[in-house]
């Protein structure tokens, strides 16, 4: 309990220090909003096929970037050492950092959805699945960002490392092209991407339609990815946090 309270303190401090800054909020909101609006202007009848994917993409870029920026910035400034000197378990540090990045991702994506709902009347068929997609995706992507950040020293190194992963999965995870339209040889790769399941959960939330037979498949898959990301982050933090 005491360690959980300390994780919460880390999260609150990070939100206070980094996530409430106007450039971050506008970047996280304006970029996807403009993309979705331009799709809507082009064809109001079909923008819903892509909007959930764009929101998932915001979640992916926002969370991985922010988690990575915060860690590399604190490593450079020496403030990350304060966490290592304090009586905190490695899990507490990871939880505190991932939770604040997740809150940022959640807040921007929810604000985006709310804006689209008010301006374009975007529907929400299943709020629970929509929220599950957000929360699990935000957690998974934050942990991947933390993992990349702890392996390097500079922000640009973390971004380069993550871009090798983020850009390719954009094209295979159903953001712009439904899974059913992907070439057969790409489908196994699509199933190996956590973004695929976040996109599907958001699709289910917004339109009620999915490429999967049951919502349990993307739900369980993203849960497994979340667990895998946590184990990976923990292993990397134990090996690299002190270097």
């Amino acid at each position: 309990m005491s360690q959980l309270r300390r994780a919460l303190a880390i999260s609150c401090k990070d939100i206070e220090s980094y996530y409430g800054k106007p450039p971050l909020i506008t970047w996280g909101l304006m970029f996807p909003a403009v993309l979705i609006l331009s799709l809507y202007v082009k064809d109001p009848a079909t923008y819903l096929a892509i909007a959930p994917g764009i929101i998932a993409m915001t979640l992916l870029f926002g969370n991985t970037s922010m988690a990575a920026i915060v860690i590399t910035f604190e490593k450079r400034a020496g403030t990350f050492q304060r966490l290592l000197l304090a009586p905190l378990s490695m899990r507490t540090i990871i939880l505190g950092k991932a939770a604040s990045a997740s809150v940022y991702g959640l807040a921007t994506a929810l604000a985006l959805w709310l804006g689209l709902k008010l301006v374009l009347g975007m529907p929400l068929v299943s709020p629970l699945l929509f929220l599950a997609g957000f929360i699990l995706g935000a957690g998974c992507f934050s942990l991947l960002g933390l993992t990349a950040a702890v392996m390097v020293r500079e922000v640009f190194e973390a971004m380069t490392l993550m871009n090798f992963f983020r850009f390719p999965i954009l094209f295979i995870s159903g953001v712009f092209l439904p899974l059913s339209q992907l070439p057969a040889w790409l489908k196994p790769l699509a199933y190996a991407s956590p973004l695929t399941y976040v996109v599907e959960l958001l699709h289910l939330g917004v339109t009620g339609h999915s490429e999967f037979a049951t919502p349990m498949i993307p739900l369980l898959a993203i849960l497994l990815f979340l667990l895998g990301s946590w184990l990976l982050a923990e292993a990397m933090f134990r090996r690299r946090a002190y270097t």
Partner: peptide, 18 residues
């Protein structure tokens, strides 16, 4: 190596939280 963006008081209180 305290947090440059936090005030002196907030830095101390945050250490207390940790």
């Amino acid at each position: 190596n305290l947090y440059p963006e936090l005030t002196c008081r907030r830095n101390l209180e945050y250490m207390g939280e940790l």
